[in-house]
Design a protein around this nucleic acid. Structure first.
Lengths: 108, 108
DNA sequence: AATAGTGGATACCTTTTTGTAACTAATATG
DNA sequence: CATATTAGTTACAAAAAGGTATCCACTATT
């Protein structure tokens, strides 16, 4: 029975959660969708997130190669975000999650 | 452009996150998998989670109809957890997430 | 009689996450 | 000259999440 136990760090789900397992990241990715969007618009769409958190989460997503950031040397600043291929591949999976959720929500 | 903005509470992804968007829930569901398992085994498999949190997350998953709990009137107690149909439907989607993650992890 | 075994509950404390408000840079407009 | 504009940053405060240790119930074993 000992070998039924695996170490979490080797658990694929745990590793996946380490990348996208936060409250906001899946929502940011879903909000970005197929479009290239400015920081301000993303922030407006997501309403409840603070600028600080959005900035920070976008930065992590960029570091993980999920989001692409393009800053234009203008004033006032303009920064556009979009999903990389890696991020785009996540989109259909996230859509399946929302469909799963919608399907099971009649009870409410 | 105003109608490009949607309210987060009506955002399908936000609603989905409200159900399974925590650090531990996807891992618990993934760990349960197709098997019916006792509390102690789940806890051992997940190593880094405390009993308190595991209990609490399992209770929420049960309330959301994702996990089924069977308690046997024995001493010492025996409690078996398994996924409901709703939970089972999540499994292939979570697997796609781990595959996505594995695919993109060469860079590390 | 003492101890092990299991799935919790509880009180308490620490860490992590999130939010708020004010401030900045460089240009354009009134 | 004052003000608006945008994408942050920073210091500070609050809230949420998570962890630790201890205790319990009841039976079986030593």
């Amino acid at each position: 029975m000992a070998n039924e136990i695996f170490i979490c760090h080797n658990c694929p789900m745990t590793r996946t959660m380490a990348t996208i397992g936060t409250k906001w990241k899946p929502i940011i990715i879903y909000t970005l969708g197929l479009k290239k969007q400015r920081f301000g618009l993303i922030h407006a769409k997501m309403e409840l997130i603070s600028k600080k958190i959005l900035t920070e989460q976008l930065k992590e997503l960029e570091e993980d190669g999920i989001v692409k950031r393009e800053a234009f040397k203008e004033m006032p600043p303009r920064v556009e975000y979009s999903l990389t291929n890696k991020g785009l591949e996540l989109l259909p999976i996230l859509n399946m999650l929302t469909e799963w959720n919608a399907k099971h929500q009649q009870g409410q």
